[in-house]
Design a binder for these strands. Sequence first.
DNA 1: TAATTCGCTAGACCGA
DNA 2: TCGGTCTAGCGAA
Length: 807
Amino acid sequence: MKKTKALLLDVDYLKGKQSIIRLFFKTPSGKIILSDPSFEPYFYITVNCAPEDAVKKLLESEFNGVRIKRAEIVEKTLFGEEKAVKAIKLIFNSTKEVKDSREEIREQEFVTHKREYDIPFVKRYLIDRDLEPLAMYEIEYDEKTLELKGIKKIESSNELAKLKIGSFDIETYSRGRFSDPKKDPIIMASYVDDEEKVVLCTKEIKVPYAIKVKDEKELIEALIRKIKEKDLDLLVTYNGDNFDLPYLKERASQLKLKCDIGLDGSEPSSVKKARELATKVHGRPHVDAYQLLRMLVRFGVVNLVKMDLESVSAALFNEPKEKIYAEEINDMWDNNRELERLAEYNMLDSAVAYRIAMTYLALFIELGKLVHYTIFDVTRSSSSQLVEALLMIEAYRENILVPNKPSDAEVKMRVMQSYQGGFVYEPVPGLHENIAVLDFTSLHPTIIISHNVSPDTLNCNHEDCKAKNSSPLKNWFCTKKRGFVPKVIERLFKERVAIKRSLKSMQKGSQQYILADARQHSLKIILNSFYGTLGYARFRWYSRECASSITAWSREYVQMVAEEAKKAGFIVIYGDTDSTLLKIPENKKREDVLQFVESINAKLPGVMNLELEGFYKRGIFVTKKASEQAAKKKYALIDDNNNLKIVGFEYVRRDWAGIAKQTQRLVIEAILKDGSPEKAVDIVKQKIKELRSGKTKKEELIIHSQIKKDINAYESIGPHVAAAKKAIAKGRDLGERSVIGFIITKCGKSISDKAQLAEYVSEGNYDAEYYIKNQLIPAVIKIIGEFGYDEDDLIEGGKQANLKAFS
DNA sequence: TAATTCGCTAGACCGA
DNA sequence: TCGGTCTAGCGAA
């Protein structure tokens, strides 16, 4: 028996007759792979007869060819019920046996429920054993059998926690089509980590980091050797899930090589996830920086116009990077032209992927620890999976059997039943001076906590709960028993508050700070996901009543703030869901706002809290394009330091041309900062002139829009779809989720006819009238219009403006 | 097997 | 050629 400190790198299981959990550890004396045969696949059923009789019957029969290995009678509570019941835990040799037999077992006439029959084996293990991947443990194991005998979490302050991370990227050669690993070779590969960068190539390249290899076989061997020699803890790629890793594996196989980069000497294995692949390297978790960014975009952590490495590098790191398309790579290769440029491109792909991973890894590690997911799983999961994982951990601790996933029919029913969301106040259009913005801090989570909103506290049997804690929709929530969902949310919420407090005394940029910040950030992401998932049709704990009660309360609270503000002598300009914008009248001071906030907080229940987001010296609201009605979700503010806050305007949208967006920003600035609509008009006139001259740069004319479904499924062919179709005809690989950057050219009849992918358009080929009439003017007219100007003033000028906006 | 609803706008599409 | 309707996308919260 041996004891050691160890970092839990990865967990998987061996398939076959017996499913056996494997744990990959990093210890002070190297890496080890241990197994835990003590953990077996299982699920639960409840029965309508004596459980002992049921067990006897079950063990005597076969179900779809499967014999149950063992059965235990256990006390469990079905989620939402008061009392524990006797349930039967059915234990099997393999996950396949569970899959094969669960339907038939459920169909036995004495079986009333089946539960937890679809929890993936590794996730099940991490829940039941209370293990957090990438945390530090004191482990005990049998040196002969390599079986895990004991494991205990310890606080880490160890060198082991420093992970060895490396990134790679490949370039392929294919003439005139998308590369096919069965035929098309890898011509170049790069590898980057914290201490070196290398480009492997079958041709001689005159850059210091290039290494010449004899042929493709040697190239692949060298790359595989590199990954193994470095003994990477994590392997990083950019889109390695669907391209680099499957491609490398297939090329290796074509050349009779083994792509044995797994810690156990195994090859990468791809699994279908949603519509795409996720590619695993056993024991050496593969982090696909592209997947990681997609999650961050979904969570609203980053905002990216496009997801290719060039756009990402520019947007996140302010480092421009050249894009070389496949067509050109083939050309360069054939003609031995500019191979240095190609090598640089290849190397930077690895370097940027590496940097993305290093920037966000701490966040994902914390997220993984929080929900007990491996780093592989947590970097590829959805909001609902994270929330579900967290609730599953809680359910296990409380001996509760979790609800099943809904059937497709149930999902359809749920989707049809929508519910009302947040309240949006109709703004007062025009220019406003001296504004205060108030926000509810974490509105939805705090409503859940403070009103105990949970599927298991909904409409309890107590009359006084109904009297004391009814939502405006007349659903009520128990006040005597803590709800399952609020209990979890409150724990996270309180931990986050505590961390945020402790952050203030830490040194920014220190290891301690980075870790704590990542932790609070991961808590924030999960906290913000709860409300949405309660209204998500496929969620195990779906509750339309809970979701709609939360929004009903939110409407009530935000409207209460507006009412009280009016009573207190403020003027309410606008509000949306959790925010209220007040105009501070002449006879009031900014301190009065703080006092008002305090007076509201005195009335709010539980942990609910209103806070001052900030003061702004000026702000503008506009009317809608098609009417004189005020536009919601569109406004701009400026603070005392002349910082602009632009919300909802074209300026923040990717589907508007840069020329229109930048001009709009200048117009807003002229009005809010300089108080000069005249200056704004001049700016617009100048830009119109520039567009008419034909000198506007291509870069400023690009409009971005995403292909959101199969390119052939469109009923209405908009410009971005038209541009994409033309590009596809030329051989470009564009599909669902591609972001199309297009320009409206001079050539064609309709707007869609004129739309072309930006890369194919030469400087100066643009439809100036389109950009003036459909981009520039719409972006500014409603703003300038607030000061009495109209379109003619922009095109010809000279007309006298009346100052209607100054009311 | 990708958290929610609310809101604005462009441009295709279609029929008069 | 027009005006109304519908599809589609993106952002706010």
